[in-house]
Structure formats: structure tokens, C-alpha cells
Design a binder for these strands. Structure first.
Lengths: 199, 199
DNA sequence: TGTACATCAGTGAACGCGCGTTCACTGATGTAC
DNA sequence: TGTACATCAGTGAACGCGCGTTCACTGATGTAC
């Protein structure tokens, strides 16, 4: 039966948000539209009233995950700056935290879906590329602010982001919890210096 | 019709090798057994004479990819050492080469399948973990040999490997070739120093 | 404000399709004598 | 070495199932007067 416009828009947002989480947890092929719509509190038949196809939802869900991730990064940066703490250290520690590793559904979309995205034609890589530029830009600013006059290589932020994504990905793909922790800690130490107190 | 034992063993190896490439290219869910067996020159019906299930083949294909990758790393290290070149630089340059990025099917199994493996129960992560230890061990040796007395942090090789895997993953998930190259170059510069000539 | 009707978000059954898996069958291979 | 027969790798049709997608239908919503 019909619902009012506000409810319909909220339902649509719920589907996109649910999809952005379930895709990260299970991969694009790991969750069907029927189960996905059910998880959003709807039935599967109405899907095509809101989306052109599953690929259409995939694109929207990735946009959503990319955007909310960027917002989260900016919030972390702002809070650290206001507290007078190192912004880079705050970003790195939050990203390489076991909690982030365990919460795949709400975590970094690159560690969860970049390999799937690379297999999905040029449209997703375009979106992911824009996302990388945003994240690397935030990192770059944090690195230059922390370096206090020392020179920071042009694309050092890209290398740092690669380290973060790679460490998160690898730490999820091992069985031993202690070893997973070592991977995260090694990456953090490499990015922040041995003591982990780099500005 | 029946084939002789040697042929049967070769067919089995062909299926595993074909699977290890196609899984890397398309993901575990991206290729069906029928197409996969066809790519190996067989029909799908015989699959269960050689494998217990698709998951069984997935495990074998990952083992195969992990092993051949490790062999390739060791060969690169040995050749560089014999030529008197920096082993770390040789490993990093080869890994972060656009050619490696483009050849997903024969390339690094972590960049291609680690996210899928993390979703696949504890068996695959056990294998991937052993693989990481092998690769990180080779990197560790190369870093200590190149450091010539300087101290190398305990798990610096784990951080370096994270950087490599992350950079390869991200460079595959962007649309612009020039930007993809920048990611690879930034990671190499970060690992080898600005000039890229670290021992 | 109240009535009449068109709209359309959501429902649930149905579609064809490819999936992983099973099975009866084939015929060259391997073995026993 | 030659013959008789059991073995079994590989074939191709068939299985049930869940997938993405379509569709006739429902009934509250939105609109026109």
C-alpha cells in the first residue's frame, strides 16, 4: 500500500544504508535483494520502484559509504585539533583500531570493497577514486600540520593511506587475533614513529 | 571416458591453476564451476571426481596462488642478491609495477582475494596468515640486509607489506591511469626513500 | 472543509536463468591370470 | 605377451534452489474541484 512521501524517502535511505553495510560485510554478490530488502524492513517486490537495478543500488551504497566515511574522518580530525592532539595520530589510531577492524559493515569501504569495485566496470572506480582523493587530502593536511616546517613528500599521504588500508585488509584476513593485532600495530608504528607519539 | 593417471593428475593441476587465476580476476562468486571447468578444457560433470566441493577448490586454489607467489618473491630476491642489487628495492619495484597491477589473475592473492577470504570462515584466513608470514619473512630479511647495521623495527616488514598490498589494491580501484600510477609510485617512494635507491 | 478520483509505494507471486551438486553412463586404463 | 574384466576420469543431462527482475494488485496518499 502507498506510504507518504516522507516515509518513502526514509525507506529509500534505509535501503541504501542497509545495503552499504551488508555489501561491506558480505560483498556485492554475498547478499541478495530479497534478504537485503527484508533487512531494511520491506519486501523485495518494491525494490524497482526506488532503484533501476542492483548495480544502481551498489553505486548508491558505495557513495553513501564513501561519504559517511569522509564525514567520520573529518570529525576525528576536528576533534583532535580542538583537543590540541596530533590529528594524524588520531586518524591513524582510530583507523587501525581492532574495533574498526571488527566492524566491517560500518568500516572503511576500501578495505571491504575495493577489490570488488575494481571488477565492476569504470563507474565504481570513478567513485572510489574521488573518495581516495578526499581521504588522502585529509591525511595530507594532517601530515603537513604535524611536520611543522619539515618537508612532506608530495604523495606521502597516498602512501600512508595505502599502509592503513593494506593493514586493515590483512588483519581481517588472518585467523590469529594476536597476529592481526601485530599487523595493525606495525602499521601504526610505521606511520607514527616507534613511540607512536608523532605529532 | 577414462584417462590415465598422469593425465588425470595434470587435469587436476590445470583446474586448480585455472581456478587460482579466475578467482583472483573475478572473485570466488564471480565464476561458476561450469565456466571454470570449460576454461580448463573439461566439462563440469567431472568436477566432483577431483574435488569435494567448490569451497574445497577455493582452498586449493588459494594455496596454489600463495605458494607460487612466494616462489616468485624468492626468485626475485635471489636474482637481485646475485646481481648485487638491493633486494628490498627489487621486491618493491616488481610488486608496485603497473604490469603486476594489470595482471590480476597471476598477481598478488592478498590484493585480489583477502577481503573475500576474510568472509569465508576460519579455514582461508589460516592459509592467508601463513602466507603473510612467508612474504613478511622475505621482506624482513631484505630490510635487515639493506639496513647494514641500522636497527629495523620488529614488525617493519608487516607495515611495508601492508603498504604494498594497500597501494596495489587502491591503484586497481581507481579509474584514471595516471592517478593509479601515482599511488604505486608514492608507495614505492615511501618504502625506498625519495630517490628510490635505498639498498 | 469535504468529496471523487488519480497516483504510486509497497506487496507477493511468478518469470527465466545460472548456480552448485548429483547421477547414469561411457570407454580407455589398469590389473589379474 | 595376450585375454578378460574391474576400475574410474570424464561426459552431459538433470536436480532443486536462490538469484535479479517483472507484474497484477492493493489501498493510503495526494490532488482537483
Amino acid at each position: 500500500m502507498r506510504v507518504n512521501r516522507a516515509q518513502a524517502e526514509e525507506n529509500r535511505r534505509t535501503v541504501v544504508e542497509t545495503a552499504s553495510q551488508l555489501f561491506r560485510e558480505r560483498g556485492f554478490d554475498g547478499i541478495g535483494l530479497s534478504e537485503l530488502m527484508g533487512a531494511a524492513g520491506l519486501t523485495h517486490g518494491g525494490f524497482y520502484k526506488q532503484f533501476k537495478s542492483k548495480d544502481d543500488l551498489i553505486a548508491e551504497a558505495c557513495d553513501r559509504a564513501l561519504t559517511s566515511g569522509a564525514i567520520s574522518w573529518r570529525r576525528t580530525a576536528t576533534e583532535a585539533a580542538e583537543a590540541g592532539e596530533g590529528v594524524l595520530a588520531a586518524l591513524v589510531r582510530r583507523y587501525l583500531d581492532p574495533t574498526h577492524r571488527d566492524r566491517v559493515g560500518t568500516g572503511c569501504v576500501f578495505a571491504a570493497l575495493a577489490a570488488d569495485a575494481a571488477r565492476h566496470g569504470p563507474e565504481l572506480p570513478r567513485r572510489f577514486e574521488a573518495g581516495i582523493k578526499t581521504y588522502a587530502g585529509i591525511l595530507d593536511e594532517a601530515m603537513r600540520a604535524g611536520a611543522a616546517g619539515a618537508d612532506v613528500a608530495d604523495d606521502a599521504a597516498l602512501a600512508a593511506f595505502s599502509t592503513m588500508v593494506g593493514a586493515l585488509l590483512l588483519s581481517r584476513a588472518v585467523d590469529d587475533e594476536a597476529y592481526a593485532r601485530r599487523i595493525l600495530d606495525a602499521a601504526a608504528a610505521s606511520l607514527l614513529g616507534r613511540g607512536g607519539d608523532a605529532a
